[in-house]
Design a protein around this nucleic acid. Structure first.
Lengths: 337, 337
DNA sequence: CTGAAAGCGCTAACAA
DNA sequence: TTGTTAGCGCTTTCAG
């Protein structure tokens, strides 16, 4: 390996010289153009390998106006991002799809960023497009990003516009199915622990819950909200217990919150499902790690991630994918109901 | 907001024109040079705000040979990355330090990347430096990255060289302290579940364990290894149970593995700490979420992350930080011993 | 303190 | 199929 190869400063010019062709031809080879003779191809490729040439990203991006990078923007703090298996699943899905393309994924945990550097970074042409998961009403910086690069949302965006692209799960229907299952089991005093009400997913699940109840002439026995975390589920459960009026069943908008609630219930000497039946949402790994195993609505998060990435890739490739995709949820019956 | 501002294509040229100065002056203002008159400063800043100007990253990077981006490289699969609170803590620490600087953090979950795109991306000048956590013997692509940009390792790198920068915790000492604590409690038939032996952290903890035992004329009652996950801890525990010869105490190299092991123990009708005393490593949130709460060696992962980021920032600023930093661990006594 | 001029390394017409 | 020629938007001497 030559010294300059070690220094990582080989330019297209040197490759061209070594291969005995012009810069343009090297560029064509690097970019996979077919209009190159076999001999030229061969000698350029050899020169590239010998010199250990890697095209300079900035120069390429400046000239082509493309970065081949995609941002994954998570408007949450690190704790919640890492604490919730939902993100693990959705990021895996995104990563799986992106890694089959020639794009790279940059991750931005945006909430931890006081100076809003994320926004100006993304607006500075650092990426070709962005995927936003976990979108809150208060996250106005997203709009500023969407003004500059195509954005695909995970979940219905908070201020939906016609031109928005997003992949959602049918939260309202999922909540409705879950609640109806509780009703079908003979429960009548049914409460809920909702997700954050500044997120469409939180609102939609609450709506579905209420709709199911209304269909059967019932009203909510309790409504408390949380931010999808186990700690919030525990807090919400405590608030419900404090009312002294414990529901006989609970629809809880995330498995993690269900786990927190179940802990509190156990501490209070209440049995699941005998005293309180519980149904969660997600079907994440925690659903099977709690005792008793959690009945829950499965949402296809990995697939959601793959789909989002696929749509963004389509947009970037100049295709015209569907704007709205809604994936279905599925009831998974275990022992908590 | 003007149309061009919306399109995000305002260039330094237009700002200069609007402010009635030259490109150079705008550049000076943007880069915080002091050699600008108050009037020029004022009018440039106004033009920037009015036009909503954001400097083009690629152009700036091409001209200045800096990207102001740092890569966080995690050679693990997504599942383990998201499943282990250790990463949450270390990433929080890194993020916390970086977000106070004017650098941005790009995350690469490198193992999921079949075509080794991460390597060529990082070698293409896309970042100014990299932080590598969870380094395995087999991860040779790291060397190719380290040849091009400064790298700071979390934990002693697998092939340590003098010029390497890293921040480690004193794993050997931590394991030793943990094991000695078990011995001091009167245990003599002590086993261990180690971390992966292709990682220095795994090896060092095993060494410390063995050293403590040797000091007291004891030998290991069982040695099984795992990849730091709960599932691996459970598997290892099963293998130990299968020998029919159950140790009366276990040093387990991660809290997550301890949790897995405790589940298996409970399933086998064995009580912690009465039948088997257990001490873990990490003091992650899982330590307090298991029953009984886990005695464990606390490692300062958040601080480790902060320190790593600080060192890289120092290198990039042209300072000369210490190459090796070793942080201490601390025994946290709870009910599992 | 300011502006002019020369690139940074690459892509993309346009000719040949 | 190939090379020549302009830039992409910015930083950075170097004069003034």
């Amino acid at each position: 390996m030559s010294t300059q190869a070690m220094r990582g400063t080989v330019t297209i010019e040197e490759v061209a010289a070594a291969a005995g062709v012009s810069r343009s031809t090297v560029s064509r080879v690097v970019n996979g153009s077919t209009a190159v003779s076999p001999e030229a191809l061969e000698s350029v490729n050899r020169a590239i390998a010998e010199l250990n040439y890697v095209p300079n990203r900035a120069a390429r991006s400046l000239a082509s106006r493309q970065t081949h990078a995609i941002a994954l923007v998570v408007p949450e703090d690190t704790t919640r991002f890492f604490g919730d298996p939902f993100f693990a699943a959705i990021v895996s899905g995104i990563n799986s799809r992106i890694s089959k393309s020639d794009y790279v994924l940059n991750l931005f945990i945006a909430n931890d960023d006081p100076g809003d550097k994320t926004t100006s970074y993304l607006r500075s042409g650092a990426v070709d497009g962005a995927i936003v998961v976990s979108h809150h009403t208060s996250d106005t910086f997203i709009d500023r990003i969407a003004a500059v690069v195509p954005v695909v949302y995970g979940g219905r965006p908070v201020r939906e516009r016609e031109r928005d692209y997003y992949v959602d799960v049918d939260n309202a229907r999922g909540a409705r199915v879950a609640t109806e299952f509780l009703i079908s089991r003979g429960h009548t005093r049914i409460g809920t622990i909702t997700g954050p009400l500044d997120m469409p997913a939180g609102v939609d699940r609450l709506d579905g819950f209420r709709a199911a109840l209304a269909d059967h002439g019932l009203t909510a026995a309790a409504v408390e909200d949380g931010n999808f975390t186990a700690a919030d589920g525990a807090d919400a459960m405590r608030r419900i217990l404090e009312t002294g009026d414990v529901p006989d069943a609970l629809f809880i908008a995330s498995d993690l919150m269900a786990r927190g609630a179940m802990n509190v219930l156990a501490g209070a000497g209440l049995k699941v499902p005998d005293d309180v039946a519980i149904i969660g949402f997600d079907d994440s790994p925690v659903a099977t790690s709690v005792t008793p195993p959690l009945t829950t609505m499965r949402q296809p998060s990995f697939e959601q991630g793959e789909e989002m990435a696929g749509i963004l890739l389509d947009i970037l490739a100049g295709r015209s994918p569907r704007h709205v995709t809604v994936l279905d949820t599925e009831l998974v019956v275990r022992a908590s109901v």
